[in-house]
């Protein structure tokens, strides 16, 4: 574990320039007026007694330079050890982001967005294992980031209100990204990230924190590919909810 941290920090100290959007953390840089794209990724989740695969499609669209809306459609397949796989639509969400602060300089920017995400219980919560939570979830949060020609630092956090008497929770992510190839546009870049992904459920002391090293390949103006491994640093949780590791593989494509 420590080897990963030392490796990524060592690389970043030599090669600090700008990069792409972080993999498991929100980005405060939006697409511009009428900008649209698609993000899709698959996430393999390995637990002690089960494995799961979640495939997510996210579509953002910028109504104005400062205001973005979008939808997230996840599909989930769960295979408990020794049992038949169950799969289908999971909980669909819609989101809105509004830029509340922007300070631009030459080849650098600092931005803050306010975010609202509403998740609907569209996944089957009665199946065994469940594909959805069966509750409505409303997340209010912030995304902030400072991107310079030397390094990109990002953070997001959201407080999530949950219906049905379920305890509210807090989601937070931190990210640092650096490129491994020379800085240019149109890009042919490989970027390295070290990210931290946290989830804390209030009043229950359930807390998980993952270290997520990742790589991103930007093959041209409009497409990138990314991969990340999530390794648990802290898991105060019931045994069945603990992950051994997660693997994420995805792509993002900007519409013309």
């Amino acid at each position: 574990m420590k080897l990963w941290i030392v490796l990524v920090l060592s690389i970043s100290s030599y090669l600090m320039m700008a990069q792409g959007p972080p993999i498991t953390t929100g980005t405060p840089v939006m697409l511009g007026l009428e900008g649209a794209g698609i993000r899709t990724f698959g996430k393999y989740i390995k637990k002690e007694n089960a494995s799961a695969y979640v495939h997510v499609f996210g579509v953002p669209y910028n109504i104005s330079p400062k205001f973005q809306v979008g939808g997230v459609i996840p599909f989930k397949w769960v295979t408990p050890r020794g049992q038949k796989r169950v799969g289908g639509l999971s909980d669909v969400a819609v989101f809105a982001k509004y830029q509340i602060f922007k300070r631009d300089g030459v080849a650098k920017t600092f931005r803050i967005l306010a975010t609202l995400k509403q998740t609907f219980p569209t996944g089957d919560s009665r199946s065994m294992p469940a594909l959805g939570t069966g509750i409505y979830q409303t997340a209010l949060g912030l995304v902030l980031g400072r991107v310079t020609s030397r390094v990109g630092l990002y953070a997001d956090g959201a407080y999530q209100l949950r219906s049905g008497g379920v305890t509210d929770d807090l989601v937070y992510n931190l990210s640092m990204g650096v490129p491994l190839l020379p800085h240019r546009y149109p890009q042919r870049q490989i970027n390295a990230y070290v990210e931290f992904n946290g989830h804390y459920i209030l009043n229950s002391e359930i807390h998980s924190l993952f270290l997520s090293p990742g790589l991103q390949y930007i093959g041209g103006r409009r497409i990138l590919f990314e991969a990340s491994v999530q390794l648990p640093l802290l898991q105060r949780n019931v045994e069945q909810n603990k992950s051994n590791y997660n693997v994420l593989l995805g792509t993002r494509f900007l519409f013309n």
């Binding site: 990069q19 959007p21 631009d104 991107v147 900007l254």
Partner: peptide
Amino acid sequence: IEVRGLACPFCAYGMEKA
């Protein structure tokens, strides 16, 4: 043209397109 805030190569596509 000097464009401030152009720090993310993947984000520059919107500028080029416009």
